[in-house]
Design a protein around this nucleic acid. Sequence first.
DNA 1: AAAATAACCGACCGTTGGTCGGTATGTCTA
DNA 2: TAGACATACCGACCAACGGTCGGTTATTTT
Lengths: 192, 192
Amino acid sequence: MNRKAERGAATRDRVLAIATRLFAEHGYEGTSIETVLHESGLSRGALYHHYAGKDALFEAVLEAVETEVGRRIADTVRDAVSPEQALRLGVLAWIRLAGDEVVRRIVLVDAPSVLGWEKWREVEARHAFGMLRGALRATGAVRDDHLGMYAHMLLAAINEVALLVARTGETDRAERVVDDLLGRLLAAPPSR
Amino acid sequence: MNRKAERGAATRDRVLAIATRLFAEHGYEGTSIETVLHESGLSRGALYHHYAGKDALFEAVLEAVETEVGRRIADTVRDAVSPEQALRLGVLAWIRLAGDEVVRRIVLVDAPSVLGWEKWREVEARHAFGMLRGALRATGAVRDDHLGMYAHMLLAAINEVALLVARTGETDRAERVVDDLLGRLLAAPPSR
DNA sequence: AAAATAACCGACCGTTGGTCGGTATGTCTA
DNA sequence: TAGACATACCGACCAACGGTCGGTTATTTT
């Protein structure tokens, strides 16, 4: 198993790249399988041999994008000297990355609707959310039994800022606001 | 203009109610105009006379749901004795309301993807977001030039909690976490 | 009474996502 | 190495979809 497997993998990658671009440009609904077929030069049968359907193709695209984003954030955070700095660097890197329309449209806007919120959450847990949760735990700022929910809230907040920045370009204000928010969160916990 | 206008309005309302149910149950993509037609007993031409297309129908549904939700939250908040209490009551009411699948699926999951994030944001600004922003400003906890972005982050965080609660049923934990978050936000601002 | 308007109808259309029987070719096994 | 097998790929076909359009009916306006 070599030539055949390689050929198959290459085809999948090619379709994936094209589908990623189209989904980002025109959204899930606005992208037709027909167009993917045309741009990839593949036949209908071939595509459905590799991907079970349009949803499955989208899911594969999402997975690839998330993996790439996770890799980049991990790179950025690698040499942070404290959990707090790691959290801050990771969050700012994520906002910067979400400046890419591919990330915005596919990961943040369409994914929950197309795959369903639960499936989306499951994917996120293996990537961005997982990293954020780990970073937040390391700072010790949040009670353990509040950790999961807190990480969710924080990620959702950050995602929103990323979408806002993409629209208005207020990058510097976003950095100040995020710093402000993290400052409040990492201050002495009230814990009631 | 009386009988005809009433009749038209009644038809629109009927379609709206049916579409709301279907969109909430099966999502935007999973709901076909055909089904709406069948369940409402209306003809194709009649529906397209009242609503320009599937998107427009969804938008009308969204607008109606948001209006209703806004009304209920306003009722809850009405007799709060302080801005802080108003914020807290409003947020908790919103989480409770988002326990309804109609609100979750239509407002939180499908709307950004179907209408586009920008359009969705515009609708939200007139409803939930607008209220939250006002409540947050009244507390004076956030610098004026950070207010808009902060309100966005807070709303996104709350929405996420609402979706989590719908899935896991951890209502009491959610309340504690939200209280914790609000406590940190309303504490003496760091302001850098 | 005539003109205008709006509600409503249903046949029709192009496009869509998906299926299926088939072929070609590389890989494994007796 | 010959045959069984698996995989990549093909394209005709299908039902369902969202949307259009010319037309009829009923009410309101002039």
